[in-house]
Nucleic acid binder design. Structure first.
Lengths: 334, 334
DNA sequence: CTGAAAGCGCTTACAG
DNA sequence: CTGAAAGCGCTTACAG
């Protein structure tokens, strides 16, 4: 809580510029109803006085806000952080102010964060929902506020959702391995029951069917962390030493698997092939070859903004928007 | 921009509760001047009407705000993301609303972000400054706003700063390696000219002196990314094949170095010892032993909040606060 | 505890 | 383009 001194207002600006309060307001709201000379005088006065536009007052009077809350479930996931950053930049370029908050994969924190942000008059909420987010909660929220979800669908919710084509991503990654003739293949990921993981597994299974391969049971990591993946792999490998290929949910999981392989000292003639369904730029520097699909954060952010725009304009956006993935398989060993 | 419908106000709440507008306001501002029965009635009415407190209006009238902007230079660095998340939680627990924005290591974006956030009446700014942040800019800002920096000092600025004891961290890490009798040792990090890196190098150099060892020239990575570190190491190793120990700025750099060592296939009898000055929890799963100092994000966040509190209370906080590092060297090979 | 009143800094018609 | 006026939803003394 801070006490602020009496501040410079549009009154002071109007005085110094020798125009009316209304004119100053028109300049501030980018109106084109103001002549060039008046505008110049106003801008000069603003500069001289160090005037700061008070968006709280403006928002209150106009019942408009350009504050967009971005609620991220896992900010320590570099993919999410980069997505949030990209989104923030795009929103900025479109005169919207992004406000990133973290729900830290905690349902209660997510609920609380949204509740608080409502009091700050956020114009819209972009939510990367935590696991077990309730469709009913989301739908109730949607009835009062502009809401969309990102990267993860909340099943049966009516809130518009933007997410990558997970199914295609895993299908591409899986086909890449299957084309090399592998037969003992498994999927490994965290939170296998969630909608995004389900979509990935579905693409994987489809690819296996197409090659007439029966996949091994999916390997589940307790968390989306390299260490979890390492341990999960070691356990699974003990049970299935014939394992020869692995489709990883993402690069974080892949990193853990690589480490496990080195730790176990698996002989190279037993070479296990690995693919990852999406790439974390700059994250992985594997000493081995890793085939990975690229899901561009910028593409996702751009599409997210378009849906947001529709939401703000009250044209009902599609309830689900799949963003294409870049099927270029990259070898990220370098 | 969104048009909001006519909203439920304290007027409506007062009506339904059968009390005065003032009483409702007193309840909302946590005053203790309200009787229990009135308070109950008000809370009930709030619940029934789905009333949402309008903080913009409250902030405007009271000239107070509990919005704290956290400007992070690199959100894709998991350490920074975790720090931001921890800080956010602590602020929340103290009735402050955190607003994370990213400057993406870009001076212009940082300047712009701060400029925008001023218009939203942020009560304070916690800035993890980008490289080359100008002390003059920061001091001008400090004159108008409550500002503090985090994790990185802007040299010669008067803004209070909270950061870990980098010098100790690198000293501990270096001593750990030097105690094993290594003689050809170097420091590797990114942006070597920045204040935080300088502090790390200083601790490293002190440790070397104490052991009578002359360090090799510091290895510079173009960015704080594993890939940069990998390439930088490979280049440096070609010049200095006698290199036998390396003190890394952090786990990201260490990860790159490890990958380089594997890629180069350096013989094990030539085993290069590695330590990292700070640990990124959950980040690194190295197949090898990595000695790393723990700089707890929660400790930093807690101290940051205390300094912020002083700032908000107008008691001048110390210009520089060093947070102790946990000298427990951990072996993060598992 | 209440009620009437003033005011935070802006936007928005509206008549000139 | 101007100027006077109303009002967004709240807080804050103040007299009762």
């Amino acid at each position: 809580m801070q006490n602020r001194a009496k501040s410079v207002t549009i009154f002071d600006v109007a005085d110094l510029a020798g125009v009316s309060k209304s004119t100053v307001s028109l300049v501030l709201t980018q109106s084109d109803k103001v002549g060039k000379k008046s505008k110049q005088k106003v801008l000069k006065a603003i500069d001289e006085l160090g005037y700061i536009y008070n968006r709280d007052a403006a928002a209150m009077r106009s019942r408009r806000s350009n504050l967009v809350a971005i609620v991220i479930n896992d900010l320590t996931n570099p993919y999410m952080a980069q997505l949030a950053t990209n989104l923030e930049r795009i929103l900025n370029e479109n005169n919207l102010q992004a406000m990133i908050v973290s729900s830290n994969n905690n349902l209660e924190l997510q609920t609380n964060a949204v509740k608080n942000l409502k009091e700050y008059n956020a114009a819209a909420f972009i939510i990367c929902p935590v696991a077990n987010t309730c469709a009913k909660w989301l739908d109730t929220l949607s009835a009062q506020q502009k809401v969309m979800t990102l990267m993860r669908e909340v099943p049966f919710s009516a809130a518009p959702c933007v997410l990558p084509d997970y199914k295609k991503a895993s299908h591409v990654a899986s086909m890449h391995l299957l084309a090399q003739g592998v037969t003992h293949i498994a999927f490994i990921g965290s939170e296998l029951s969630l909608s995004d993981s389900q979509a990935l597994q579905s693409g994987f299974n489809t690819a296996c069917s197409q090659h007439g391969v029966t996949p091994l049971v999916a390997i589940s990591c307790s968390q989306n962390q390299a260490l979890s993946a390492k341990n999960a792999f070691i356990e699974a490998y003990a049970k299935h030493p014939q394992l020869s290929a692995l489709v990883c949910e993402n690069d974080i999981i892949a990193q853990g698997v690589f480490t496990a392989i080195q730790t176990l000292n698996i002989p190279t003639n037993n070479n296990i092939k690995i693919a990852s369904c999406y790439h974390l730029p700059y994250y992985s520097v594997m000493p081995y070859s890793l085939s990975t699909v690229v899901i561009n954060t910028h593409d996702i952010a751009k599409r997210c903004h378009l849906v947001l725009k529709e939401l703000l304009q009250n044209t009902a956006p599609p309830v689900k928007t799949l963003v294409n993935v870049n099927s270029l398989i990259r070898d990220s060993s370098q």
